[in-house]
Design a protein around this nucleic acid. Sequence first.
RNA 1: GGUAGGGUACCGAAGCGGUCAAACGGGGCAGACUGUAAAUCUGCUGGCUAUGCCUUCGAAGGUUCGAAUCCUUCCCCUACCA
Length: 399
Amino acid sequence: MNIDEQLELLTARHVDLFSAGELKRKLAAAAKEKRGLRIKYGADPSAPDIHLGHAVGLNKLREFQDAGHTVVFIIGDFTGMIGDPSGKSATRPALSREQVSANAESYKQQVFKILDPEKTEVRFNSEWLGGMKFEDVIRLSAHVTVAQLLARDDFSKRYADNRPISLVEFLYPLVQAYDSVMVKADVELGGTDQLFNLLLGRELQKVYGQEPQVVMTLPLIEGLDGVQKMSKSLGNYVGINESAKEMFGKLMSVSDELMWKYFLHILCRKPAEIEAMQAGVASGELHPRAVKDELGRCVVDRFLGEGEGQKASEEFARIFAQKELPDDMPDVKLSGETGIIDLVVKAGFAPSNSEARRLIQQGGVRINDEQISDVKAVIKPVDGMILKVGKRKFARIVC
RNA sequence: GGUAGGGUACCGAAGCGGUCAAACGGGGCAGACUGUAAAUCUGCUGGCUAUGCCUUCGAAGGUUCGAAUCCUUCCCCUACCA
């Protein structure tokens, strides 16, 4: 691949890029010296669940790796104690050493579903931050002004609205920028919310006499609700370690408009290909459901193995289109007649009797496909009876 | 240190002596419909041995027949001025 081809591939799908010219120069220099660039990517250690939102960035990293570059994957075990400013809480409980290493293992296991382990350098930022003295922190802080930090959109807005900004939050971008200095990053990748932090890395590298890193941001994709960014705390995410059934089902619940974004950023489909599908749907030739089915199958295959997507798709069609029973469902053991409320609670489908009562009254409870709407109904258990609550909760009764 | 404004259910936010298990919005759940766990529409959304009872509006006391609402003390948060 020549430099221009590489550049085109590597910059696809980006939002911000500072700058294409610099990247090109770096690529050329690296090629000449027969070395790879160092691509930095930071991860927060407190939530070791990688989801499809992360896949957007990881996919890009993989493209860099395939082009011969090295990914420096930084696990922010130290910054994790601070908490990212975009979050609600300014501070988080510090993680213990064991937690950090357990999370790190979990991270690697997930991340390497996308990244090439051979071309990944995993680092913890406590490595260099942990040993810093307060004096060092002061010296580091001296390089940045409050005005610079207030330039960050999130900060300036909060400041203007008289909403609190904690001092640690101010420190966060600084620390992240310092990471870039320490790992001598050539390029840093992040979500668009990271733009400020990434750019500060450039400033700090200059202060430390390094060539500033190229900064590239990728979009934050919306989660299942189609509105909010995909995130663990909002619960609108698809984890890459979830079961095929869950993963497929969640993807099918994505709105028709949003699925195109997933094709682009999660599956890295070519824009032309996506436009062709969109045209197909618009003309009525292609059914949106079929397109979404393909999305589901491809994503499941990608993370859980070839063929898993097909299986998940078939099971989904069986349960929701043909209203048949799933392959496996939990057992509920009954020993004698049981009130319907008790049964629903016992199966774990309602957290309280009141909730179970509501479900029954709303017609959401079925036994052997027969709606039970009487709250006082008593069930005579028969081995193999099927309890269904809502559209997707099933249990088999055993006695 | 001073001044002002706050702490209400999963979240945001009304309520400011009874009609408050607490408006409204979001989220969640259920139903209808469908092309699907899309979209849309409707309903529900503290708990219980359930036409009643119990616990909840930062905490503890108090006033009152009656408090999320008034008083006292305390805890916490925020902004502004020093």
